[in-house]
Amino acid sequence: MDLTPIHPKVTPIYQTSVFKFASLAELETYYTTPDHGGMYGYSRSEHPNSDELVAEVAKLEGATGGGVATGAGLAGLLAAVLATCQAGDHVLCPAELYGGSVVLLSQELARLGIETSYVPLAELYDVARHRRPNTKLVLAEVLSNPLLVVLDGPRLAQACQREGILLLIDSSFTSPMLTRPLDWGADLVWHSATKYLAGHSDVTAGVVVARDPALGKRLRQVATNLGLMLAPLDSWLAVRGLRTLRLRMRQHSENALAVAQFLVASPAVAQVFYPGLPSHPGHELAAAQLLNGLYGGMLSVRLADDTAAAVDTFIQKTRLFPLAPSLAGVQSSCSYPAATSHRGLTLAQRQALGITPGVLRLSVGIEEPAELLADLQQALQ
């Protein structure tokens, strides 16, 4: 069937594992020309839906080097590390890093000969002191998970540039609506697209984009060779989610600020971690660095009764913040870091990071804020 005259407004889902070639000459063109001459061969390597997703994220991030979409957020981190490091190299990270990233780096990649060390974020800016001769990459988050410590991105980028070390920024908590790390001087930006980019809790995906085209090409090679490429349907769903990202991030942020202000006044809450609050130690930095006057939809609290039992009572009473291990969907949820994102850390490691038994992370959705506050009121009584 000839589809030439058909011009869909929305890119179709190319639910195919392979694409056809008309001749050996066309096949040779595919393998020997840049960007395969605009053709596609095998969806493990590339397909129109993942290309569209990467192009849209790259446009939002100002990334001229392209990148790759992967089957999960951590697969994106894997691609980024393997595109920049090899056995014998070293990665430098803040101690406040997401637990899943720590497990991947310190357990799986360590077995491949890639070392990782961790220092408190406040000390990470002194890259010259903490680097090793084999340090190739620094990884940091815009806002730490779960206590929302604010990164001074430009300062860290300048420190990495002075040392000739690549900088990878995890922007999963903020999205390009709040931060554009390449503008700071970062080399790569990584998103768990499962979170805000796709935004509807129906996709598991990662996206990494680069400043340098050579690095972007290497990301694609790693994803192809390891089979990390995101599937067509999931790519299509993530692109669909991107269409409303700007609107969603505004509502997430407005709702989260209202929730944070409500929780500060609650006697059941000892501490609220949200950079939009003037009481947050990183508020001034966040106000100067985050875009559009938004602070995101993520916050955490430490209950006055700092016990797992108090958290469990809240979980069983809430109706609009169901317990879930992920975040950033249009519907609100809560998570218990000690048993989910930071489960792989020891008790001593969690305590050192301030993740006590009564810490609860809230992902604030885009529901009517009055309904969220009423639910929190009854759940915390």
Rank of each mutant, 00 (worst) to 15 (best):
L380Q: 04
A260P: 02
V208W: 06
L215Y: 01
F321K: 02
G113S: 09
T4Q: 14
L299F: 00
T16V: 07
L303P: 05
Y274D: 00
T346Q: 01
E254K: 06
E141K: 01
T313W: 03
V149A: 14
A268L: 03
L166M: 10
A159T: 01
A223S: 13
S253C: 08
P213D: 07
I366V: 15
T356F: 03
R250W: 02
G67T: 06
L215W: 00
S253E: 04
Q271G: 02
I169T: 05
L197M: 03
Q251S: 11
C334N: 08
T204F: 11
R246E: 14
P133T: 14
G73L: 08
E163N: 14
T70G: 04
R302T: 00
V330Q: 04
D51T: 14
A80Y: 14
A374Y: 03
W190K: 09
G206K: 07
N225W: 04
C334A: 09
Y118S: 09
S17G: 13
D212G: 08
A80K: 10
Y31P: 04
L215G: 04
L226I: 14
D126C: 12
T346D: 01
A287W: 08
V119D: 04
D202S: 15
L104W: 15
L247R: 11
A339H: 09
V57R: 00
S201I: 13
L104M: 15
H47S: 02
Q261M: 04
L294K: 01
F21S: 12
L230Y: 11
F19T: 10
A122I: 15
R132Q: 13
D170H: 02
L373Y: 05
F262E: 07
A374L: 11
L353F: 09
V150W: 12
D51F: 02
D35G: 07
A348W: 05
N134H: 15
L247G: 13
R44Y: 12
K217F: 01
L151F: 08
T307H: 06
L245I: 07
T11D: 00
L24C: 12
I366K: 04
S43P: 15
Y40C: 10
Q351P: 01
E96P: 14
P267A: 08
L320V: 12
A128V: 10
I165S: 08
W236F: 12
T204I: 10
A110F: 09
R180M: 01
R162A: 14
T340H: 09
F21M: 15
D89Q: 11
L112N: 06
V272G: 02
A270P: 04
P34H: 09
S117C: 14
H200I: 07
G241H: 00
V189Q: 03
L230F: 10
A87H: 13
P369Q: 05
A205L: 04
L178V: 06
V269I: 13
A287E: 15
Q351F: 09
P357W: 10
